[in-house]
Design a protein around this nucleic acid. Sequence first.
DNA 1: GCCCATGTAGACCGACCTGTCTACAATACG
DNA 2: CGTATTGTAGACAGGTCGGTCTACATGGGC
Lengths: 194, 194
Amino acid sequence: MHEISIDPEAPARERILQAAQRLFYRDGIRATGTNALIDEAGVTKVTFYRHFASKDALVEAFLDARHAYWLDWFEQALDRHGATPAAIAPALAEWLADPDFRGCAFLNSVVEYGRALASVKRVARMHKQQMIAAVTNCLDKKDAATQPKARQIALAIDGAIMRVQSGEPASGVVADLDALVQCVAGTFPALSQA
Amino acid sequence: MHEISIDPEAPARERILQAAQRLFYRDGIRATGTNALIDEAGVTKVTFYRHFASKDALVEAFLDARHAYWLDWFEQALDRHGATPAAIAPALAEWLADPDFRGCAFLNSVVEYGRALASVKRVARMHKQQMIAAVTNCLDKKDAATQPKARQIALAIDGAIMRVQSGEPASGVVADLDALVQCVAGTFPALSQA
DNA sequence: GCCCATGTAGACCGACCTGTCTACAATACG
DNA sequence: CGTATTGTAGACAGGTCGGTCTACATGGGC
């Protein structure tokens, strides 16, 4: 999940998208002006508007690309940690502890831009659906309770993201998340301790 | 948690704060200009800046007032529902189903304004600490595991807030939250069903 | 009687916003 | 060879932003 850098060899459209990845995520959508994007991408205004009809169109392209990028990372991170319930918190911990971590791009976009651009909420919901699917793959037995469990864990993941974004130390938040996942997933360490 | 209305009899400072409550929460901080606040409060620009040195100062006052307002509502709602673990989801459901619901003002402020105004994150963390304390009061036995449990439940609460803000139907999210709370709090309905 | 806090109305400032414009250069393709 | 595409540089338009300014009115306390 390292910060996106701009490849000066890439064609203009791609450089603009890379600039959007970097600036929209780092500084937020509203705080990032088209002029800043243009400077970062190393293109001119005409080139920018030839590839994207408006800033809103770029926002949509940004979210699509971000979704693919993030989900790919998340699935690989879960696999690296064993793809068990116990993998969830450590996988996320990698991200939450990253100095470039600025929260979930989709939750941020909903807050910043959900009212201005209706499609943002739709894409955010789709993204979370996919995240829940990735969590589901880490749960043991697949019965009727598995889907609800995955959704519950996903709620806590989003809460953990927001908490760390607020400046709470990642270590404590991850510990809470880990305990919650074990509890919901059925390992129940709280019971064995009680 | 009904929408704040402006009392035309109130002194100017209070009217400005009421306008901030209404517009900052409804439309967001960045989307709300000082001119809109001034119109809504029914004051003039000079009056506005005589009471608040800057928009940032008003944002801080807004968050302080919002914290008192929201926490008061939350504690009363939990009491009304019995102040047990089972009270948590129904209490929140009242808020999440409100047509004026626009998410958590503190999480929203962190996303929108956390980088622009450092104090926002601090106030948001304090607010969540207080929310966790209110949750703690609903948990049964008070032992060493109670605090972590409350923090875990609070993570899911924030996730539920963000999910509903993204447009997910509140009913399903509340059901997931309720099941999670029962699981973490120790009632373990998942176990009794298994 | 004076003064100061609080209020009114609205012009104004510089900065930044999204988006359009003219004018010109290089390259690829039929 | 001709033309469409993609690119360059940067001025410009119309609007909003946060914030300051002048000038005047009112009412309560010392």
